[in-house]
Nucleic acid binder design. Structure first.
Lengths: 336, 336
DNA sequence: TTGAAAGCGCTACCAG
DNA sequence: CTGGTAGCGCTTTCAA
């Protein structure tokens, strides 16, 4: 593959000049530009990004750390970062396959080796302490879907507690009186906070959530089905159920209908996340919109700003997002 | 950030020695290894991948070119490549946002600048000619979801024609006699071949597909709904419909049921791709499985083999995939 | 087993 | 406006 030297030689100029036309440098004669441009084309020259990164100390690379790509939620997150990358003429470097604290750490380290200018990381397993140290070491690191007080301006997160409250208010407004809740068995913050917000809001209006009407399951379609079966098996009645995420909610609808309950006329089902899936279910799912893509773009932009010279001290940046209720067809006024 | 020189200086050895322990090089004394390892940890040293790539002329980077990440089909494709990347200790470089031949070309060029060792590209807009030249220029380039005679061993593709035939045979075996077909309005090979295979197979058993019962639409949920409305509006009867992809098929089911037809008892619906969605629909979608992830892994491995020293001349490699029928709930024996 | 030194391809600084 | 040149951080001979 042709190098800058080849181009310089063939064009009869110095490498410095070639470099200048490559970077639209100042003060290059039109003649030189044309000559060099032609030779570059002839030689099929392609600048070596690695060499450039080495000397400029910037890789024009944006790293993303997510558990996997197939989950549409994380795909949207990656997509958000990709959009910003393209806007800023940067490239996306992706690390996935995260299950444990170690693999999360490995993924981040790989991005560091590649000297990613900025990295958007979704970490659930690494401790606050470790993440804080990392943030101090890597200027362009931004956390998404996680909030750590000490580095608040480097976190872009969703207010899950408020999400739970919004859910409760919606169902309450529809005059429901008896509720069930399906949460995730993975005891990370998100499901716990959503549940707490839901309970708190109910409690504030004098409604108690029966402990037997709270189920924890795998955050998948099947998990939702199983949890719903258990709910039904309890024999307790409820007219509305708030579910941890859309996949589980769709599973819940499926099981409910298999058992003769109409959604929403008999039982209302409210999901969370608003992934693509929710628009494909029948009835279409009412859910809380989690603007991941937008948040990912925001995170990427914060990272870029962080590493850019003029480190504008925008500490007042709005990094907390509130989910928005999306009323579709799976929730309605309580019958009777 | 500490460099190899820093480590060498602090450890009191030469950079060559540090490099050796870094690469598990041969002939390094245990003492040196320990000393250097400790200093690397103390200094929080992280080798610079760009510098390494520059000198070794290999980036341990795997590039992927796809239209977008949000489409679950492409997410699976990317995931497949990612899995191989991880197995081989390589990193994923992603380029998306492809709409035109130009943007496809740009994406590929970016990966070339980054000197990706191997790249898996999904291109629909670039001409055979251009792609052939590219393949000759980039040793590790592999095409996925596309077949070009001249570089057949660099292509991993699905036999769409056969897919259409399999669909027809399935519906025929269920004793259907009158068929409809919903295809994609984008006249690239895939939808055309699927439709042709379907028609050919029907014809071979003496059944003709009524031209008025072939609709072309946007390959989305809405597209499927609209196409189905047109089908219904034609007034012609059909008991089975073969749809271009799962999203459209789900849209079709939705419209069919809204118009009083039960799926599958009144009308059978057969999708294509077997994306996650198909398991979430009600009734669960019968479809043809497109093993993208597996194919993507295969493509990545071919690319890796291509750039590895021992270019094993495995021209007999199996690169053609046949979709597999996944019988779920949306297809059944013709009633009556 | 170790060190010195020559680049990898490029940018940027300094002269001219 | 142009050329010479010193590295960026690392690997890899070649000698010692």
């Amino acid at each position: 593959m042709a190098t800058i030297k080849d181009v310089a030689r063939v064009a009869g100029v110095s490498v410095a000049s070639v470099s200048r036309v490559l970077n639209n440098g100042p003060k290059v004669s039109k003649a030189t530009i044309e000559k060099v441009t032609k030779v570059m084309a002839d030689l099929n020259y392609s600048p070596n990004a690695n060499a450039r990164a080495l000397v400029t100390q910037k890789s024009t690379t944006l790293g993303v750390v997510i558990p996997d790509l197939v989950d549409p939620f994380f795909a949207s997150l990656a997509q958000g970062v990709e959009i910003v990358a393209r806007q800023k003429d940067m490239q996306l470097l992706l690390s996935t396959g995260l299950v444990t604290a170690e693999t999360e750490m490995q993924a981040i380290n790989l991005l560091i080796e590649r000297r990613c200018d900025v990295m958007v990381v979704h970490s659930k397993k690494l401790s606050d302490q470790v993440l804080i140290e990392l943030a101090n070491k890597v200027p362009g690191l931004v956390l998404i879907d996680r909030y750590i007080e000490e580095i608040a301006q480097r976190c872009v997160w969703l207010d899950n507690l408020e999400g739970g409250k919004i859910a409760a208010r919606h169902l309450l407004a529809l005059e429901h009186k008896s509720f069930a809740c399906i949460s995730s068995k993975y005891q990370i913050d998100d499901p716990l906070l959503r549940l707490k917000g839901f309970q708190d809001e109910l409690k504030s209006t004098g409604v108690m959530l029966d402990a037997q009407l709270i189920e924890f399951g795998e955050p998948t379609l099947q998990g939702g089905e199983i949890a719903t079966q258990k709910l039904l098996a309890s024999g307790k009645r409820f007219s509305a159920v708030f579910v941890y995420n859309d996949a589980m909610a769709i599973g819940a609808i499926s099981t409910l209908e298999d058992n003769g309950f109409k959604v929403p006329s008999d039982i209302s089902v409210l999901g969370f996340d608003d992934v693509l899936l929710s628009r494909y279910s029948r009835p279409k799912l009412s859910t809380l919109n989690y603007p991941v893509e937008e948040m990912a773009m925001h995170a990427a932009n914060i990272g870029i700003e962080l590493v850019s010279k003029q480190a504008t001290k925008n500490n007042d940046k709005h990094c907390k997002y509130i989910p928005r209720l999306v009323k579709r067809e799976s929730t309605s006024f309580k019958a009777g």
